[in-house]
């Protein structure tokens, strides 16, 4: 199950959902948790940290150690709340929060890697804003975290979640896939639709390179969190509209791995290609 979306869906069908299948798997494989209550407690703790990182990142005074990033999430949120964003309030708030968590991370704030620190803004921004908009309970958000975790686990096992190995598609791409599945669940989509949403998001970010300026998790990373969460939202919406993904999720993940392997090392977290090689970014 930890290596195959097809098997995950089979388990989900017999256990009543992907969250239940993930909980059952985790209980068998993690010797540090004894009960479902222990496990859910850890998930709730992650959720609490996500909330804190959002509010820390929305502080206009947030600045990274290098000074390259910070303070932009506050601008985005202000624009979203006063009707100045083209994507409307919900989209604006989701994107602003994604940027907030990423900026909190760059400023040495406390975050939950999801699945990595570089891509930590995407999942919390979507879940917490969906809760604000539609009134989901924390319990529903915890289920959504297990679902995101289930897809992330399969991506990690079949492909990669490390930028140095698979490029940014492995970090922001994976986070978008996990988030798309979680959003689809919250909006009432079936496990099959959750898998399709994940596949759509991975498909739409396939090939994304990892090109951090000066090797730091800042430019373009914090902005890519915004791009990735918007891809996650549209991927979920496609699945929720009843659009079937023509390629099974497992195959998209395998393709992602092959694309990652084909990326030259200059585009895998070495800070030597892409944005990192832009002339104005090469000046110290």
């Amino acid at each position: 199950m930890e290596r195959s979306v097809t098997k995950l869906l089979t388990r989900a069908a017999s256990l009543g959902g992907i969250a239940a299948a993930m909980r059952e798997w985790q209980l068998r494989h993690d010797d540090t948790v004894r009960t479902v209550e222990d496990m859910d407690g850890r998930m709730r703790q992650a959720l609490a940290v996500m909330r804190e990182s959002v509010s820390q990142g929305l502080d206009p005074k947030t600045r990274s150690v290098s000074g390259l990033t910070g303070g932009n999430a506050a601008k985005y949120m202000a624009a979203a709340l006063t009707g100045r964003t083209a994507g409307g309030s919900l989209m604006g708030r989701i994107c602003a929060r994604s940027l907030a968590v990423a900026e909190c991370n760059a400023a040495m704030g406390r975050i939950v890697a999801a699945p990595t620190a570089g891509a930590c803004g995407i999942l919390p921004a979507a879940l917490l804003t969906m809760q604000e908009e539609y009134g989901y309970t924390d319990g529903q958000l915890v289920d959504a975290l297990y679902i995101a975790g289930a897809f992330g686990l399969i991506i990690a096992n079949r492909a990669s979640i490390a930028g140095a190995q698979g490029g940014c598609q492995a970090e922001c791409g994976s986070a978008a896939g996990m988030t798309a599945a979680a959003i689809t669940f919250l909006k009432g989509g079936s496990p099959r639709q959750q898998a399709d949403a994940c596949a759509f998001a991975l498909m739409n970010l396939m090939g994304l390179v990892c090109d951090p300026v000066h090797g730091l998790v800042e430019v373009p990373c914090v902005f890519r969190n915004v791009g990735a969460v918007s891809v996650a939202l549209s991927a979920a919406d496609m699945a929720l509209s009843g659009i079937d993904c023509p390629i099974p999720c497992d195959e998209v993940i395998d393709a992602m791995r092959q694309v990652g392997d084909a990326l030259p090392s200059t585009l895998r977290e070495t800070g030597e290609g892409g944005c990192a090689a832009c002339p104005s970014m090469c000046k110290k």
Partner: peptide, 21 residues
């Protein structure tokens, strides 16, 4: 690897390898 390696670790940023590690 398990679910709390994906939803986690809880850490101080900015980099799981360069900071948390």
């Amino acid at each position: 690897m398990h679910v709390f390696d994906i939803i986690g670790p809880i850490m101080i940023g900015p980099s799981s390898s360069h900071t948390a590690g």
